Amino acid sequence: MASLATHFSAFLFFFPVGVRRLLFSSSLYLKSPSHYRSKIWYFSQPRWKNLDLYILMIALPIASFSELFIFLSFSGHPTYRFAFLHQAFAVLIFWALLILIIIQEYIGTSFISESYVFIFAGISFLVDYSVIGKGIAGLGAVVYGFLGGLTLVCAGACFYLSVKPTAFFADFFLSSGMVFKGTWLLQSGLSLYTDAFGLKGCQKILPASPLEDIDVKCDLDEDSLRGITLMHFLFTVHGILVMILSVGLFGLLASNWNLRWGETRGPLLTELESSNMMMPLPEQELE
């Protein structure tokens, strides 16, 4: 998390994936709540419509190797330097998760169970949590503390879905958590690493000397306290907006059948319809 570029790149990863997951999972749940079963990734048919997944398959290793190259060439603050190495490893873990998703979808559960893929997804979020805000203190630590909490919510949802994939509320929290994490990543990058959107009376995060922790430098203690209060307020605003977005999308899908995603696509819907057809019909009452 050492620059605005890494925050923006992470936003482009988490926010679209979270919104897409929210749309597909809600559509599937509304079609048949009693037969709902969460998927690690909601594939569309034909397969070219899964373009976002294929783009991530290419973009994530490029991002990981870019972070590794910066680690090898960066000669500044050691905490900053090793932050790039930790980020490279975290991005690589998410790339490995996408590979497992593709293997599970195209080869089938005989090779690897979806529950194990959910467990690996939870581990990926825990790895991400371990590198968030590493070596940053003060105001920056408060901002990244919120981000760490959102990451733990996503990890917990993944672990719960690995045990009970029929729990829609866990999938809802996972999707909303990824959207919230994406928006807060963007907010953190703008507030901590830019002058235009920085906090009043405080400078953007700059590399410190090898003996100092990295922190946002504020002119006065009052500026630092005001900045902490403002970030608490912004976090609350983000949470309210994400909840409105999530609940609003669910309500919109529930009220309009034509807006639902994945209604006639993919093997999951076929399995769902087959199970519905196999259900015994209630006996007619004798007149």
Rank of each mutant, 00 (worst) to 15 (best):
A157G: 04
L161Y: 03
V153K: 08
P165L: 07
F159Q: 06
L152E: 09
S176L: 07
L150E: 11
F159T: 04
L152Y: 13
A155Q: 07
S175P: 05
L147W: 06
F159N: 00
L150Q: 13
L161G: 04
A170K: 02
S176I: 01
A170L: 01
A170H: 05
F180A: 10
L161K: 04
L174S: 06
M178P: 08
S162G: 14
G148P: 09
M178I: 01
S176V: 01
T151Q: 13
L161V: 02
L161E: 02
T151V: 14
S176P: 03
Y160C: 03
C158T: 13
T151R: 06
V179G: 02
L150N: 14
F169V: 10
A167L: 11
L174K: 15
K164P: 05
F168T: 02
D171M: 07
K164T: 11
G149M: 12
L174H: 11
F173I: 04
S176A: 15
A157L: 00
Y160G: 05
A167H: 11
G149N: 13
F180R: 01
G156L: 07
G177H: 07
L150W: 11
A155G: 06
L174F: 15
V163K: 13
F180H: 08
S176G: 09
K164E: 13
A155V: 06
F146Q: 04
F180Y: 11
D171V: 04
F146D: 09
L150H: 09
L174D: 05
V179N: 02
L147C: 10
A157K: 03
T151P: 12
A170T: 00
L152F: 12
